[in-house]
Each structure stands twice: as structure tokens, then as C-alpha cells.
Amino acid sequence: MFGSRSYKFTLKNTSTISLHYSFKIMNASTGISDSGPFSISPRKGTIPAGTDEILVVKFSPEEIEKDFTRILTCRIPNLPPDVEPLQIKLGGVAERPVCHFELPPSTYREKKGKDMTPIDSKYSIIEFQSLGVKVKNTKRFMVVNPTSHSYDFEWEEVESEDPGKEVKKEKPMFRCLTLKGTILSGKKFEMVFEYTPDNVGEHESFWNFKIPVEDIVQPFMIVGHVVEPIVLFEAGKINFGPLLLGGKNKETINLINQEHLPFSFYFNKESVKENPDYGDSLIVSPLSGTIPPQSQIPIEVLFKPKYEMSYNYNLICNIKRKARPLALNIKGVGYTIQHSILADKQRIPVTASEPHKFDF
């Protein structure tokens, strides 16, 4: 029960014209149309001359029966009267499990197999995907009790059985909110797990689901993937170039959010000042805010140099859920206009404090 088995076979067209076909599944005892737990795909179609088609019969029992026997009949129009119809006898056996986990499909086992790190088939897999770090992700799924009696269950976190895998004692990223409970006969119980990552990467945790009265232990591997939110500046730097002291120049740069969720941000105020020698030569607005999903927000940067010198800022913008902040480099030069008076052919500097004699 609650599982499926598939069987493939080939239907070949050996004639010189196209072959049209359709399938019907009948009860072996009554002869009436009754597919029961069986299905076939495709159910009907056309096979060009000299080619074949692969068909798949699936057995998916949802209840226990003494006899699942069915007859699969293929109807092909315009067959000679003396040709018997194609028939296949179908059969199967189903067992009632003590419990059934209604888990979404996972491709993690296939992925690890391609990476040459296969996962033991005994593990059921629960996958999380977190958009950023330090955010709580919740996964819910149902466990079904198809038996005629109620039973207690419990979850237990265990260490990896891989002797080559280093186990670090860190703050747990995975947490079970339904560690114990009772599943009534014929009912479902909702299980809840949380995943709160604090660093970017892929994380694994191993758990056992136990039914003590039945002496049943089902191992689980819980996997978490952290994806960095795509929030970025449209450019990585601004160069104001030379600017006269007392003057000011303004540039606008967009902070872009390519995700489906809003993200808050704030600039590190110390990075706006950067160096005590710079004075208050740079103003950033806004210093904090929220970027709507699939949107952008303009950031105004005003440069008004206070001193005659070169300026080099590295603005730090922190984005909630991003493990690493964004950086924006800003350069500029403050200058003043220098003037002097030179006298005679010798080009002697003339100052206001000292008189100079001109010889005409």
C-alpha cells in the first residue's frame, strides 16, 4: 500500500501501415472494465509502420485485496477475424504498512549518486531550501496510521553513521517540533521540522522515527540548502573625480532585489565616515530601508569634500539574510585653486606682507 511498482513492455508494429491501439483493463473474474490498482501509459495511440512503442503498467494499491488479478487487453482496429486480441494477465501483492510517510519527492539521492557519494537506501529524505541565512524555514508532512490500532511515536536525532564524516558540535540548525505523539488508528499526524541555517552551504542531519510498541525504526536524512539572495548594486564603484572645495556632486545608484521576497538593508555608518581625516564629506540617503520583491531602490550618494586630499570610501551595506554584506567603492578628490604673483624677469614671488621694489 501507498507505493508503486512499474513494468515496461514493447508493442511493435510489423506491418507497412500505421497501427492504432487502445488498452482496457478488466476484472479477471467478472470480465467487466475494472482497472483496480493498475494503470497503463499511454492508454491509446498510434505506432508508425515498422516501429515500436514502450508502454508502462503501474501497480499502485491503496487497500488490501485477496486477488488483484486483472486482464490487460489491447484493441487494434481492422485485425483479421482469426487473429486473437493481445492480452496480458496482471497480478500483484500488497502489504499493509504500519505507517506511511507522505513526503514530497526528493532528487537529493540521485544528486549525491552523481557526485560519487551514494546515500544508503534505508534513509527517507526530507529537503529544505533556505533563501539566505538566519531565517526560520518550516517543513510539514503527514504520517498515516493505516492499521486497526493506535500507537505512540518518537523522533530521535542521531550522529552520522559515516565513520569518515567529521561531526562538529555546533548549534543545531534542525529542530523537530513534534518529538513525541500518538497516531490514532486510520488517522494522520502532522510532523513539523524547522531549519535555521547560520552559514551558507549544504547541511545534513540524521534522525530516527520510532514506534516502540512495533519495534520499528525508520532512519531519516534531513538536508538543508542555503541559497544566497540575489540582492546587489547595479555597479560596484562611483568615481566623482576632482571637485572644488565647497562644491558638491551627487550620483544615484540602484540597489536591486531580484528575489520574490522583500529584503531590508542598512549601511554601516562607520563606513560612511571611513576616515576621521575626511570629515563629513559624504552623505548617503537612505541609510536604511526595505527593497520590495522584484524591484529596486535608488541610493543617493552626495560628495562635498571638506579638505584638499584624495578620498577613498568602501561603503558596507548589510542585507538581511545575506551572509556577506555588499560593498560599494567611492573615490573623489578635493582641491582648491592656488594663485601667486611673480615680479620681474626673475619671477620673484610677491606677497602682501612684504613690499617689492619695481625697477622701471
Rank of each mutant, 00 (worst) to 15 (best):
S271H: 03
E234V: 13
V226C: 09
I297R: 13
K304C: 11
Y311Q: 00
V227R: 13
T290F: 04
Y307E: 12
P212H: 10
K210A: 07
F209H: 04
M309G: 00
D215G: 13
F206K: 01
V200Q: 12
P219L: 00
V200L: 14
D277F: 09
E259A: 00
V227W: 03
K306E: 10
T290A: 08
L287V: 10
D215H: 14
L245P: 00
P229K: 03
N257K: 06
G201K: 06
L244A: 13
S288C: 10
I211E: 02
G247K: 15
S288T: 11
V284T: 06
V213Y: 13
N249D: 13
M309Y: 08
F209E: 01
E308Y: 00
I222S: 02
V231D: 08
E204A: 07
H225K: 11
I291T: 01
Y266P: 05
D277H: 10
T290E: 12
H225F: 10
I230W: 12
F206L: 06
I299A: 05
F240H: 05
N257E: 03
H203R: 04
K273E: 08
K269H: 05
G279E: 01
G224M: 09
E204S: 09
V272G: 02
N254H: 14
E308G: 06
P242Y: 06
P242T: 07
